[in-house]
Write a protein that binds this DNA or RNA. Structure first.
Length: 279
DNA sequence: CATCAACCCTGAGAGC
DNA sequence: TGCTCTCAGGGTTGAT
């Protein structure tokens, strides 16, 4: 579920510091604890541990849904997939005893300072990489939807190049990087486009509206610090702004027609059958 | 090329 | 109360 706005919120907190925690820049990794080795995608866990020990974090960025830490040598990259979070915390509690790890903490980076960086992941779908260059991961990604280079004209051109259902296409990270199930449903609702429409059937006006609504939901999501859902990733408020997602049976905020839920591309999909017509 | 199913996982919520 | 079952979902892989 962490999509672009959630990952952006997390990386900003890590970079700038939050809740009394310092930012990660200039922190030196003293040791690495791995409690679930399958999180490490590359290299093998032992090499990962060895390579990161002693490295200094230079910067923290986001690309699509990836968390990207530039080191003094090499790059640490993380992907939270479904149910993950990254946070910093103190290594000791106020009374001086070791701060116990949480039950879902999979990778812990102990800093030389009294702090640590934690990769938590309930469902163990998340992945981390230590790479010489992150290009091998990032080269598959489509444009950043909030980048000035991502224009309406570019989106319209890209839509025409495929004859695919619009919803799975928007969620395809090689098409655009950062949209997941929530923000795709919200963007399609705001643009008044049915999730099953074929991408090459959209009019230029619809492409324009879609471009606008994609940027709108992402910007609003970031302003609201992302969406908090269920029991993972708390702290965001965008769930209060949902107009379609997770609102099955509730009245459409525009026309009062009950929101419907269908399955598209193996994903639960919410839309208003009146405002988002198939033909 | 487009679509679909399976896989990796856990906890919540429903049903009994 | 407590068990079993179903579901959710990002991305990858393989089949159709």
């Amino acid at each position: 579920m962490p999509e672009l706005p959630e990952v952006e919120t997390i990386i900003r907190r890590l970079k700038n510091g939050a809740a009394g925690q310092p930012g990660v820049c200039h922190q030196v990794i003293q040791s690495v604890q791995i409690t679930w080795p399958k999180i490490i995608a590359a290299p093998d866990p032992a090499s990962f541990q060895e390579a990161l020990t002693g490295k200094t974090i230079i910067d923290a960025q986001r690309r699509g849904k990836y968390l990207h830490f530039l080191l003094d040598e090499g790059h640490l990259v993380g992907h939270l997939r479904m149910s993950g979070d990254m946070r910093t915390e103190t290594r000791l509690t106020p009374d001086g005893t070791p701060n116990p790890a949480g039950p879902y903490d999979r990778i812990i980076f102990n800093f030389s300072s009294p702090h640590r960086l934690v990769f938590s992941n309930i469902r163990k779908f998340g992945r981390m990489w230590y790479l010489t260059t992150p290009q091998e991961l990032f080269k598959r990604l489509g444009p950043e939807p909030l980048d000035p280079q991502f224009t309406a004209a570019l989106l319209i051109e890209k839509l025409r190049a495929h004859a695919r259902q619009i919803k799975p296409l928007l969620m395809d990270q090689s098409f655009i990087a950062g949209l997941g199930n929530i923000y795709t449903d919200e963007a399609l609702f705001r643009a008044g486009i049915h999730p099953l429409r074929k991408s090459d059937s959209l009019s230029p006006a619809e492409g324009e509206r879609l471009h606008q609504s994609i940027q709108e939901v992402l910007r609003q999501g970031i302003l609201r610090f992302g969406a908090s859902l269920d029991w993972f990733y708390r702290g965001g408020e965008f769930q209060n702004d949902f107009k379609a997602y997770a609102r099955t049976g509730h009245p459409c905020p525009i026309c009062n027609t009950p929101i419907e839920k269908i399955v598209v591309g193996q994903r639960g999909t919410h839309f208003c059958p009146h405002c988002q017509k198939l033909v």
